[in-house]
């Protein structure tokens, strides 16, 4: 099939970018979305043009690298998928597909569709860990954890750190990302000890980096490729209130 593409091209972080139109013939429904872009890039290189830069790695929905805003939605249409899991079956012959990078002040564009998500790293460094030195750990079964808590912690821990929540949020808020980590660790007895400090520091860092505030819109949750729910944000809010006392 033949499709039209509108893709954000930007040479470097400080240059001005813009949407560029492409027409691509010979696209197969069997391709994944990223394979379609690979194919586009092959044709661009063969024409002597520069390929579109985009991030990807595992191509099986687990590394969190891929990060495309497709037709108005992070990771495109479809529930709980990453861009690499999106298939061309979602499109029809003649469709126009608009591809943009994540947009947020805290995620500046590096090139084309690649953004700098190191702000997430900084938030994590502010407290997204349990301070357990190697060698200090007690026997793994010494602290039983109720299955429901372990399962809920797992649900939060499934976060890929892809940033779709920020991309989807009208406020470019990182609350779902932050809450997933805080919630995971707060649910486990091993991590619960540091919850107050963790909540305070991670939120302060999130604010400092220029993410917006959560106004409970819920767009993040709808676009999260791992289906992380905003009830974790409520837990984060509780932890934050608790941290003040």
């Amino acid at each position: 099939m033949k499709i039209k593409l509108k893709i954000w091209r930007q040479e470097s972080p400080d240059s001005k970018g813009g949407l560029v139109d492409y027409e691509l013939d010979g696209v197969s429904k069997e391709m994944s979305f990223l394979e379609m872009l690979d194919y586009l890039n092959t044709t661009l290189i063969e024409r002597g043009e520069e390929p579109v830069a985009f991030e990807h790695d595992c191509r099986e929905g687990i590394c969190g690298c891929c990060s495309l805003f497709i037709n108005g939605r992070p990771h495109g249409v479809g529930a709980e998928i990453t861009t690499c899991e999106l298939r061309m079956t979602a499109f029809e012959n003649g469709n126009t597909i608009v591809i943009e990078p994540w947009r947020a002040k805290a995620f500046p564009v590096i090139r084309d569709l690649i953004v700098d998500r190191s702000a997430f790293e900084k938030i994590m460094q502010a407290g997204g860990f349990i301070s357990a030195n190697a060698g200090a750990a007690p026997e793994a079964n010494s602290i039983p954890i109720p299955k429901e808590l372990a399962d809920e912690a797992f649900d939060a821990a499934a976060c890929l750190g892809c940033g779709a929540c920020v991309a989807a949020c009208p406020n470019a808020s990182a609350m779902l990302f932050v809450s997933a980590k805080i919630s995971q660790l707060a649910l486990l007895p091993q991590g619960e000890v540091e919850t107050k400090r963790r909540a305070r520091d991670m939120i302060a860092k999130m604010d400092e980096l220029g993410f917006g505030a959560c106004s409970n819109i819920g767009a993040c949750e709808a676009e999260c490729p791992k289906g992380i729910e905003i009830s974790h944000i409520a837990r984060l809010n509780r932890a934050f209130v608790a941290s003040a006392f």
């Binding site: 860990f129 349990i130 357990a132 793994a140 299955k147 797992f154 660790l185 991590g191």
Partner: peptide, 11 residues
């Protein structure tokens, strides 16, 4: 060590 680091292994 992994359990102490918060890895939510199945229980």
């Amino acid at each position: 060590q992994l359990v102490a680091s918060g890895v939510p292994f199945a229980r």
